[in-house]
Design a protein around this nucleic acid. Structure first.
Lengths: 133, 133
DNA sequence: ATAAATGCAAAGCATTTGCAGTAAA
DNA sequence: TTTACTGCAAATGCTTTGCATTTAT
């Protein structure tokens, strides 16, 4: 059995973790790179991706597929859902409400490990801007 | 006001539509290209993508983002959800069961246009192969 | 000392685009 | 004959990888 590699607390990683801590904006790799590389002018994209992949594999970070253009990252690994504003692309957390299940027939054949609801809609800011009731 | 462009029924498009008709495998662009180009040796990837994008824009086709590696396409545009087997990647249709809503507080501020549930789990074939109960 | 991470540049894929030629309407 | 589509190849954009060097442990 191969032992899991050590996770080294490099300054770059700490800076990324610091940026993600409590962040509810669901940033893309580029968002993270742009912000963190301001403090860390030597930061490279490879490091951002390597770190994100490491964190995702260890379960510290959730990779979202809700944006068809790019991966988004969510430091909140608790069970919750998301809403994407179809006008501005903003992604908002949605607390887990009712429990959703597979229809009985399928529930018998499949094993469910988790689920994720994507809501599509308009956020308050866009409704205001576009005068949508 | 610019009039919507005509949709021309080219043999390539008809072949793609024919392949998608009733198809529940949620194929990627490459799946479609591979199959359709057998009949149509001149078929190009650009044509596949152009057609898929045209169909998606017209609402004839649904683009799925459930697979983080690539877009998948679903000719079934009725309201339903999906289950992805985390072992084999197969995507299976899930009929719409209970209605899911935003929590009351958010429901007041956001306008919801739709939702999509992604279930993650194991399909019967993989359960059998891996002896998962 | 050792194992792992960084940073760079190059490579890898999925997807898009420009354009000249071709075909549907 | 007009308008749109095809096919090619080149371009784009996100993400990954190889490797020499550096750093955390």
């Amino acid at each position: 059995m191969k032992r899991a590699p050590q996770f080294k607390r490099t300054p770059q990683r700490l800076a990324i973790l610091d940026y993600l801590e409590g962040n509810t904006s669901h940033p893309s790799a580029e968002d993270i790179f742009r912000t963190v590389s301001k403090k860390y002018q030597s930061m490279s994209f490879a490091t951002v991706y390597n770190t994100l992949n490491t964190l995702a594999k260890s379960g510290t970070l959730r990779e979202l597929t809700i944006d068809p253009e790019r991966k988004r990252y969510d430091p909140d690994t608790s069970r919750h859902h998301h809403l994407i504003c179809v006008l501005c692309g903003r992604i908002v957390d949605v607390p887990e409400g009712v429990t959703v299940d597979l229809p009985g027939a399928m529930a018998h054949d499949f094993t469910i490990l988790g689920n994720h609801i994507e809501f599509y809609g308009n956020c308050p800011a866009c409704k205001k801007k576009r005068k949508i009731p």
